[in-house]
Amino acid sequence: MSTRSKPLFERLDRAGLVQHVVRLITDAILQGRLRPGDRLTESGIARDLGLSRAPVREAARLLENRGLVVSQPNRGFFVREVTAEAIDSLYELRICIECAAVARLVAVGPEPALPGLRARIDEMHRLAEAEDPLAQIEADMAFHRLICEHSGNPRFVTVFDQIADETQLGLMLIGRLYDDPLRMAETHEPVIAAIAAHDAEAATAALEYHIGTARRIVTDIFRKLKEDSPA
Rank of each mutant, 00 (worst) to 15 (best):
T3M: 09
K6M: 02
F9A: 04
R14Y: 05
A15R: 15
V18C: 11
H20G: 11
H20C: 08
V21N: 12
L24K: 15
A28Y: 09
I29K: 13
G32L: 01
R33M: 00
L34P: 12
R35S: 15
P36K: 15
L40A: 13
G44V: 15
A46S: 05
R47N: 09
L49N: 05
P55V: 00
V56N: 02
V56W: 12
A59Q: 01
A59C: 01
A59K: 03
R61H: 07
L62R: 13
E64T: 04
E64R: 15
N65Y: 13
G67E: 11
L68K: 02
V70M: 11
S71C: 13
N74Y: 14
V79W: 03
V82N: 03
T83L: 00
L90W: 07
E92D: 14
I97L: 15
A103C: 14
A103N: 15
V106Y: 07
L117V: 02
R118D: 14
A119G: 03
D122N: 09
R126M: 06
L127N: 08
A128W: 02
A130P: 01
A135V: 01
Q136A: 13
Q136K: 05
E138R: 12
A139W: 00
D140R: 04
A142W: 07
R145D: 02
I147N: 05
E149S: 06
V159K: 09
L171R: 13
R176F: 09
Y178D: 03
Y178I: 07
P181K: 08
P190V: 01
P190T: 04
P190K: 09
A194V: 05
A196I: 10
D199S: 08
A202S: 13
A205F: 04
G212V: 07
T213Q: 13
I221Q: 05
F222S: 08
K224E: 14
E227D: 11
S229E: 09
P230N: 10
